[in-house]
């Protein structure tokens, strides 16, 4: 445990201590939270600001394919797109990462070659998380051994909703340890809460704190596999959590909204949330990511519009 976290050491000593701490966090007023997120959504981002935001958003994408039908060919296509999102314009930034299932990590790694695009792998019996702990840890170690730079784990929503907060905390800690490579370095750990299943904003704030206390490098909204995924409000709430955590511990934690962000307009709204809630420290793909797939093409079309002055169309971006 980092020394800065010692202040919180006593809150994770028992289930009841952790419960008292989590339930002592300030409540979240749902109406007010959503109103604030909506108000920031009315910011008008034009011209130079839009160009900056589009390139930043592209560079923050974890380009994702998480389907049962994923093949090496599909993953290679995705990797190629991550490196050169717009083949007609080499000034387009690379995406932050490609995000795949553990068995596709080696393929993705090979396809990316030396490019500065990370390989993120979901793990821990994604997306449901319904497996025994040893299975989840083996899943994680397997992905790390195959070369994953980042692990996107899911928490056990069942344990969390049943009030077994310490179990949730211990799971994250165990996965974090499983992220350590033989050379002592570690894959960065993103912790998915599946906010749509946690349902209340109070739960999302509590889950965020469990994740951060357990050593998450990123907290992430969702798997993209349920009805409600990333929303401006739940992302704003998680940004407030990482802001407060940094203020109290000095430790910076990243945020990754995932699922349902499909348009440039939406992505820019999320960047405005980042800018006005946590500021420029998080305006980098080191600390903020979008879990998305179709978003990239819309960003590319808007980018082309800005540089050429006219809209191209879906045939002028690659379909993968």
């Amino acid at each position: 445990m980092p020394t800065t976290l010692t202040a919180f050491a006593d809150v994770t000593t028992s289930d009841s201590a952790l419960r008292r701490f989590l339930h002592g966090l300030p409540g979240v007023d749902a109406v007010g939270l959503e109103a604030r997120a909506a108000a920031l959504g009315t910011r008008s981002i034009k011209t130079t600001a839009k160009a900056y935001a589009i390139d930043l958003a592209i560079s923050m994408i974890d380009l994702t394919t998480l389907e049962g039908a994923d093949t090496p060919g599909k993953v290679r296509a995705l990797a190629a797109k991550a490196v050169h999102p717009d083949p007609t314009d080499r000034t387009t930034p690379m995406t932050a990462a490609v995000c795949v299932y553990p068995d596709m990590v080696a393929t993705a790694k090979a396809a990316l070659g030396g490019a500065d695009v990370k390989v993120a792998s979901v793990a821990t019996a994604f997306p449901a998380g319904r497996a025994a702990l040893p299975v989840k840890l083996a899943d994680t170690r397997d992905a790390v051994a195959a070369g994953a730079d980042e692990i996107d784990m899911v928490i056990d929503r069942g344990a969390f909703l049943a009030g077994r907060y310490l179990e949730t905390y211990e799971l994250i800690k165990a996965v974090k340890e499983a992220c350590v490579r033989p050379d002592g370095t570690s894959a960065r750990l993103k912790v998915i809460f599946e906010t749509g299943e946690l349902s209340t904003y109070d739960n999302i704030r509590r889950a965020s704190w469990i994740g951060m206390l357990a050593g998450a490098d990123f907290i992430k909204t969702s798997t993209g596999k349920v009805g409600v995924n990333a929303t401006p409000a739940n992302t704003l709430l998680m940004l407030e959590a990482v802001r407060d955590f940094k203020a109290q511990t000095g430790i910076q934690v990243g945020v990754k909204p995932a699922g349902g962000i499909r348009t440039t307009k939406d992505a820019i709204k999320f960047l405005v949330l980042v800018n006005e809630t946590v500021g420029e420290d998080w305006l980098t793909n080191e600390w903020f990511r979008f879990g998305a797939s179709s978003l990239l093409n819309d960003l590319l079309m808007q980018r082309q519009k800005l540089s050429t002055g006219r809209y191209s169309g879906p045939d002028y971006v690659t379909v993968d």
């Binding site: 008008s44 981002i45 034009k46 011209t47 600001a49 900056y52 960047l271 420029e280 305006l283």
Partner: peptide, 11 residues
Amino acid sequence: MASLFEYAPAP
């Protein structure tokens, strides 16, 4: 206000 993400005028 962050200077990285400076909002262009939007009158």
